[in-house]
């Protein structure tokens, strides 16, 4: 009896693993295909010979992306926006969530309602554009930061987490004469690291992937961030390559150049994920259970 169950268990595991491997491959193979294209020469790419490994291996496409496009400029803009934006967002979210987590805080209800309101209703593209224009933020990096400064959902996650911290811990600090800011800094924040890391990733990914705000608010070529650069470079590839000297034009296929641009753009954020994934997984369920 026991062994039969074990056998069926083993079967289940085997099938399960096989399925997971297949799903994993389905996700991985297109990526490999693009990677292979980015390293391959023109004839092989245009002749549709590339599967999962490069043919006529060379680095021309990457050399061109790095030397002759706005890649590093765009990357710099995106890094700046992501770093400044995430730091500001975290600061403001924590400073707002902490008092809002205290039931005795006066005006808590109306302030929370305001946040909920902004979650449900959105002013629209044109009022948003006019507001940015009147604030003088058009064509500045702040146009990519201010609209995402506080994401109400993140605020609520943070607030719920703070509410779960036993009041007695904070009271003990109060008895020792700590101010509220001191309590927040020395007591609450150290035990809230998981939620801060999680929100940090949420915000950072949000800023990194932000496409809509720069699309609408940024017209200056030198301030366009990575996502816009990516779209516009990929869409303009044929025209761009057409105007290059033969040595460049003939060395890569448009598809190969596109592949190299895509790979270059995702590598930076890809490098960050493994280090933060730990928090990401544990953080996903944060704030979902009120203790």
């Amino acid at each position: 009896m026991n062994s039969i169950r074990n056998r069926s268990d083993r079967w289940f595991d085997a099938v399960n693993n096989a399925l997971i491997v297949v799903v994993g491959l389905i996700c991985l193979l297109p990526f490999l295909h693009v990677l292979a294209k980015s390293f391959s020469d023109q004839a092989s790419v245009m002749g549709n010979k590339i599967t999962f490994y490069p043919i006529g291996m060379h680095l021309e496409a990457f050399r061109f992306v790095f030397a002759h496009t706005r890649f590093f400029e765009a990357l710099q803009v995106t890094l700046l926006v992501t770093i400044i934006g995430t730091a500001l967002s975290l600061t403001i979210t924590i400073l707002a969530a902490y008092p809002l987590s205290k039931p005795e805080f006066k005006g808590r209800k109306p302030i929370l309602l305001l946040y909920v309101f902004s979650m449900l209703f959105y002013g629209g593209i044109i009022p948003g554009y006019i507001l940015m224009k009147e604030l003088g933020l058009l064509n500045t990096i702040w146009a990519m930061i201010v609209p995402l400064l506080v994401v109400p959902f993140n605020l609520f996650v943070c607030k719920t987490f703070f509410e779960g911290i036993p009041e007695s811990i904070e009271e003990s600090a109060k008895i020792d004469g700590a101010t509220n800011l001191r309590i927040l800094r020395s007591i609450v924040l150290p035990i809230s690291l998981p939620v801060i890391a999680t929100l940090g990733i949420f915000y950072a990914v949000g800023y990194w992937n932000n496409y809509f705000h720069p699309l609408i608010y940024i017209s200056s070529v030198d301030l366009k961030p990575l996502q816009l650069f990516l779209y516009e470079t990929i869409a303009n590839t044929e025209e761009l390559l057409q105007e290059q000297p033969d040595t460049v034009r003939l060395s890569m296929a448009p598809e190969g150049f596109r592949a190299a641009t895509v790979i270059s753009s995702i590598v930076p954020i890809l490098l960050v994920y493994p280090f933060l994934q730990r928090y990401f997984v544990t953080g996903m369920t944060l704030g979902s259970v009120k203790g």
Binding site: I92, L95, P99, F105, L135, G136, W142, I145, L184
Partner: peptide, 23 residues
């Protein structure tokens, strides 16, 4: 606590005015 929330609000404003300076 009201003061802390106030600081949060001020920081938002500071973010904005920092923006015009940048521009």
């Amino acid at each position: 606590k009201t003061a802390i929330a106030g600081i949060a609000a001020l920081t938002v404003l500071a973010g904005c005015s920092g923006g015009t300076g940048q521009e």
